[in-house]
Computed example of a mutant assay.
Amino acid sequence: MKLIFAIIRYDNEDEVVNALTQKRFSITKLSSTGGFLRKGNTTLMIGTEEERVKEAIETIKKECGARQKITINMPYISGSAMMNCATMPMNVEVGGATIFVIDVEDYEKI
Rank of each mutant, 00 (worst) to 15 (best):
I70F: 04
I99F: 06
I27A: 05
E49Y: 00
K69E: 15
I57P: 04
N73S: 09
K29T: 12
G96Y: 11
T87D: 00
M82S: 06
I70G: 00
N91V: 14
K61Q: 13
E55I: 08
N41R: 10
K69T: 05
S26F: 04
F36G: 00
F25V: 04
A66M: 11
K23Q: 15
T71P: 00
R52T: 09
E51C: 00
E93C: 03
F36I: 12
T59R: 07
M45W: 06
N84Y: 05
G96A: 06
V94H: 04
A66D: 05
T28Y: 01
E50F: 00
T98H: 10
T98L: 13
E51T: 09
K29V: 09
E51Q: 10
K62E: 14
G40Q: 13
T48W: 01
I99A: 06
E63A: 13
K61W: 01
S78R: 07
T98N: 14
V101K: 03
G65C: 02
I60Q: 02
E63N: 15
T28D: 00
R67N: 05
M45C: 12
K62H: 09
V53F: 04
A81N: 07
T43F: 03
N41E: 12
G65M: 05
P75F: 03
I102Q: 08
L30F: 14
G96M: 10
A56F: 08
A86D: 09
S32Y: 02
S32C: 13
R24I: 01
E49W: 00
N41Y: 10
V92N: 05
N73Y: 04
G47S: 10
A86T: 10
E51H: 11
T21L: 14
I46D: 07
I72Y: 09
T59M: 11
T33V: 11
V92Y: 06
K23C: 00
A66L: 10
P75E: 10
L37R: 04
F100G: 04
I70E: 13
L44R: 03
K39M: 11
T98I: 12
A97F: 05
I46W: 01
V101P: 05
T59D: 06
Q68G: 00
A66G: 00
G79T: 05
Y76L: 13
N84L: 07
T42H: 01
L37D: 02
S80P: 00
G35V: 13
F100D: 05
A81K: 14
G65N: 12
I72P: 00
S80H: 08
P89M: 03
C64W: 08
S80R: 08
M90T: 12
T42V: 15
F25A: 04
G79R: 02
G40F: 02
K23E: 14
G65L: 03
G96T: 09
T98Q: 13
A66P: 09
A97T: 06
I99G: 07
T21Y: 11
T48H: 01
V94R: 02
M82I: 05
A97Y: 10
C64V: 11
T43G: 05
C85S: 07
S31D: 08
C85I: 12
I27S: 07
E93I: 15
M82T: 03
P75S: 07
G95Y: 07
G34W: 11
I102S: 12
F100I: 15
L30P: 01
A81M: 04
E55S: 13
F36Y: 14
Q68L: 10
I72K: 09
T42F: 01
G96N: 07
T87Q: 06
S31I: 11
A66T: 14
M90V: 13
T42C: 14
